[in-house]
């Protein structure tokens, strides 16, 4: 029952299809559906392959998971390095505690699960066993934000807010396969704990066209434009780039500043770009509007005395619906079409 005393089903309007009726019915995507559009270039399991390769020169790296190796692409690492892979069972608190134990003994553990389970169920372990002493544990989590249609149990819509609040923890939200490959290496090199959001399976390849190179803690201007600046992270950078191309056809010139490192935030570049040219500033993220990149940027701009026209593209502060992912991305305003429409409306 909802807070308003009504069951959710009272508001739902199921539309059974009459026998033989035409049309395609959108179904709930597989839990781990790829977010790649049809025909889009992709790379398979970029995290798993990057980690397996990195392990060739980094004997300190071990991989741990809580019954989700296949769904976090860690199975690629496990196959390449079976004796360096630890299956901890469906026990996320143990997963994080054990990862801390490995780090204490000089290893660099990569611990994988879904973002909901790391941020919600295992938080205290991540906080006290890992972050409090800045141990070298890399937490890599699939299903960030709204990337599954399975409903709130699997939709990690508030993970960035949770981990942003955690001292010592770095927070990364990569955009595509290329960035995941590069970030995997970069976070292994960085001392201290890292939380990285993961797109898994066949992951779109987008940033190769921009000569992109991930640098820890740096944001990158992928394209420039005088009318609006989209400051985006994670898969929303993909959407922002697509939206900018479509808007270009209507002579609306939109810049895109990609911010893969949410914490520590590249305040200098963000403030400089937001200050430049009096553009509309839109922050886009695959996360609730509470406590994510949008509020981080807003705070940074306010502290710097920069006050552009400011808008947020983010998920609402609500438990989201279940259903087909394309439907949900449209519904909550994070599909490319929705981004285009909203920027037009705000200009």
């Amino acid at each position: 029952m909802s807070a308003h005393g009504k069951f959710r089903h009272e508001a739902l309007k199921p539309r059974p299809r009459a026998a033989g009726a035409p049309g395609v019915r959108l179904k709930t995507s597989a839990m781990i559906a790829s977010i790649a559009a049809e025909g889009q270039a992709t790379r398979p399991a970029p995290f798993g392959h990057a980690l397996a390769k990195l392990a060739e020169t980094r004997p300190d790296i071990v991989g741990l998971t809580a019954d989700l190796s296949k769904y976090t692409d860690l199975h690629v690492f496990a196959k390449a390095w079976p004796d360096r892979f630890y299956q901890m069972g469906m026990a996320e608190q143990l997963l994080m505690g054990a990862a801390a134990g490995f780090a204490r003994e000089g290893f660099t553990p990569f611990a994988t699960t879904y973002a909901v389970f790391a941020s919600r169920r295992a938080y205290d372990f991540i906080c006290m066993a890992i972050a409090e002493e800045s141990l070298d544990v890399k937490i890599v989590c699939a299903l960030p934000g709204l990337t599954t249609g399975y409903g709130p149990s699997h939709q990690a819509t508030e993970d960035l807010a949770i981990f942003r609040g955690l001292p010592n923890m770095a927070v990364i939200d990569p955009c595509d396969a290329l960035e995941i490959e590069q970030a995997t290496v970069a976070i292994a090199e960085r001392k201290g704990p890292v939380y990285m959001r993961l797109l898994r399976g066949n992951v779109p390849l987008v940033l190769d066209r921009y000569g992109y190179k991930f640098e820890f803690g740096k944001s990158k201007l992928l394209r420039d434009g005088p009318d609006a600046l989209v400051i985006s992270t994670g898969l929303m950078t993909m959407r922002a780039l697509e939206a900018a191309e479509r808007l270009d056809a209507d002579r609306v010139r939109v810049g895109v500043l990609h911010v893969p490192t949410i914490k520590p935030l590249d305040v200098e570049t963000i403030v400089a770009e937001a200050r430049r040219g009096g553009r509309l500033v839109v922050v886009a993220e695959n996360h609730t509007e509470v406590g994510g990149l949008g509020e981080a940027v807003a705070g940074a701009l306010l502290r710097a005395g920069v006050a552009p026209k400011f808008r947020q593209i983010a998920l609402p502060d609500a438990f989201l619906d279940a259903g087909a992912l394309p439907t949900l991305h449209d519904r909550y305003g994070i599909s490319t079409a929705a981004v285009v429409a909203r920027i037009k409306a705000w200009l």
């Binding site: 505690g97 054990a98 801390a100 134990g101 003994e105």
Partner: peptide, 10 residues
């Protein structure tokens, strides 16, 4: 005990 398990494995 969870941390100890990780240390013992390590």
């Amino acid at each position: 005990l969870s941390v100890s398990v990780g240390m013992a494995l390590a």
